[in-house]
Design a protein around this nucleic acid. Sequence first.
DNA 1: GTCAAAAAAC
Length: 464
Amino acid sequence: MTTDKLTRSIQGPILHSFNISTISELLSKQHWSVLKPHLRVTKPATFLDQLLNAGVDSELVFRFFNWSQKEFRFSYGLEENAKVLHFLANSKRAGKLIKAEDVIEDMKAWGISPNVVTYNTLVDGYCKRGSAGKMYKAEAIMKEMLANKICPSEVTFNTLIDGFCKEENVLAAKKAFEEMQTQGLKPNVVTYNSLINGLCNNGKLEEAVDLWDKMVDFGLKPNIVTYNALINGFCKKKMMKEATKVFDDITKQELVPNAITFNTMIDAYCKEGMMEEGFALCSSMLDEGIWPTVSTYNCLIAGLCRKRDLPAARELLNEMENKGLKGNVVTYNILIDGSCKDGKSRNAEKLLNEMFNLGLKPNHITYNTLMDGYCMEGKLKAALNVRTRMEKERKQPNVVTYNVLIKGHCKIGKLEAANGLLNEMLEKGLNPNRTTYDVVRLEMLEKGFIPDIEGHLYNISGMS
DNA sequence: GTCAAAAAAC
């Protein structure tokens, strides 16, 4: 195709008419000027987001953005920049997080000074994407923000608090909560929701309830997110009576439960083996005018799998598809896990093939689950084949992969190989997690092996 | 009007 033809094929009012593969082709050939008129008619952030969604390499998108900025210099506002940064920072497709400092440098070069929102976006990018030590980086950005005389806002603190909670560091989250008040910022509903959720997910239910009371005392009205977080807290502790009480309170407060509210309850019932209650709640959703989602069905399907009723689980998937809801990766992961636990790993692998045929992209969990299934059946060769398959799909083994394989090797007494895998994992810079510590290490110790992960273990236990 | 919060699968 000539450039001229390409130009014609992407012309048109806005984005409807353009073909993303054409665009990627243009991008990779660096025919950027062809795309220039396009940027005038659309919001660059939307445009770039579409590129990322279409799987165009994020580095390329970033370079293109950089170039277009220079071309247009002041034609985009800071808002658009912030949005673009957000997409780039959060893009799951991004190979690596673009260095915050670089982004800021570039912005300055464009003649735009970063503001609170820019920094907030970057902090959030680190909180959501980074691996171990991400919060350290997020805090570093905050320091830089202060150095540039930009005051953190409520959003900055909310982002940090949530980030700490997701890292299971409730202590740091509480510190940030204090700090924000010292700086004269008032915690809002989002702040409380993040903390309450963090406390609930870390088993500190009483503190969560206390915080709820405090927030009401301060005149803040809990919203549906607050309710969902607390319900989740009770559900995790298997306190279904209390969860139901909170659930019933929602309508009394003239709030409306949403799909997440229902899904949380349904999942909890299913985990307790109370399938009837789960199904009953699912049909009551419809009465309330809330449509069950794929996630709703996933909870129920998982419940049936736990009961080792795979035919029923499969049947429910069909039923759901008849209602126009397609199964997703999670659905298949659940079914694969169910088949494996049922001792039918070969069937599980058939499900994996089915996923491919449906155009669903298996993720790490898919492969890890299947490998675990084979390992549990003592079929180590099959498990290793899955690993090869996974790597062919450009998925690098992660900590869980190694845990599963090491466990599998230990199980059949291949300790040398298990130790080799452990070293491989450490060499790759993967951080051992609790399972590595609790299961893998103990198992190896029992067999007389002293795995060399103590230093790493010290790091992870020192964090909490 | 940019940015922040809730559930499910190893």
